[in-house]
Design a protein around this nucleic acid. Structure first.
Length: 280
DNA sequence: CCAAGGCCTGAATG
DNA sequence: ACATTCAGGCCTT
């Protein structure tokens, strides 16, 4: 049986949601927490450590989701252009650290920092004659010194990373719980971590905690809202304040529906590509 | 509640 | 060359 909605692997990987993926020939290899994933040219995903994974979010009814978000004409255009773009379900701890690092940075730099972190703190493994570094366990980063973390090029975010890892080891952040509770409760909790504000929290929730109503509002999305949605979502203030972010999000869920996170991913991809932004 | 400024870093820009 | 700007924000004042 052929999948009517195949995943566009290249575009999905190059859409700013994951950073530790490398292409080798026709195959992609990626680090996902303590797992190594391989996606072949036919789009078949496999865990090289034989771990159960739902990286491709196979429970999403993508047909229904795309139908719903495509009611919006701009999203509809983006969907047609990047049909196979998908949201992955990644390891929450890795996702959290990745997006703490992402703030006020750029994709190349995020990638380089994360690679250094895996090389310095992650377990080295050899599988299928290839070398990999897993993502470090929370304990490892929680016990690292600020300077060791800084050596990975993360700058002032180093103490955030350490403290975030500590909160995970101390169960002040419990990903299992955050997955179960609703969007608002999860957000309230995750924003207690230093270095995590509205935008980073939304990324973590959308990409790793199964919260498809998360709609990360970064500078690009604000530009998009101003460009295509100046009537629907009027931006009142110069900078997006806490209050503004909340109000905007409510209007956005109302407009795009409960799967607005997918809408965001399509819009973001489209606008970045239109501006010739590099992903690596 | 909002605006403004600082912040690590390194690639890109002038 | 060398200085300045900018990059998928956050936090403090």
């Amino acid at each position: 049986m052929k999948n009517k909605f195949p995943i566009d692997v290249d575009n999905s990987i190059n859409s700013g949601q994951v950073f530790l993926w490398k292409k080798d020939g026709a195959d992609w290899y990626g680090i996902n927490g303590q797992d190594i994933l391989k996606i072949n040219k036919n789009g078949i995903i496999k865990s090289l450590t034989n771990t159960k994974t739902n990286f491709f979010r196979k429970n999403d009814n993508i047909q229904k989701i795309i139908k719903l978000i495509s009611k919006d004409q701009t999203v509809n255009k983006a969907v047609k252009e990047y049909e196979g773009l998908r949201i992955f379900r990644q390891d929450p701890f890795q996702c959290m650290i990745s997006f703490i690092i992402s703030s006020n940075s750029n994709i190349q730099k995020i990638k380089s920092s994360l690679e250094k972190i895996t090389e310095k703190f992650g377990k080295q493994v050899r599988i299928q004659n290839k070398e990999f570094f897993l993502f470090p366990e929370p304990e490892k980063l929680a016990n690292a010194s600020i300077n060791e973390i800084k050596a990975c090029g993360v700058g002032y975010r180093a103490p955030f990373i350490k403290e975030a890892a500590q909160m995970v080891t101390l169960k002040k952040i419990d990903f299992k719980y955050l997955e179960k509770c609703d969007y608002y409760e999860a957000k309230k909790n995750i924003c207690l971590v230093p270095g995590i504000g509205n935008k980073v929290a939304d990324c973590i929730m959308l990409f790793s905690l199964n919260k498809l109503e998360a709609f990360p509002l970064d500078t690009w999305m604000i530009k998009i809202l101003e460009k295509y949605y100046s009537k629907e979502f009027k931006i009142e203030t110069k900078t997006i304040t806490q209050k503004q972010y909340q109000l905007l999000h409510e209007k956005i869920v109302n407009h795009f529906g409960p799967y607005c996170g997918y809408a965001q991913q399509f819009l973001f991809k489209m606008e970045r590509e239109n501006n010739d932004k590099k992903w690596l």
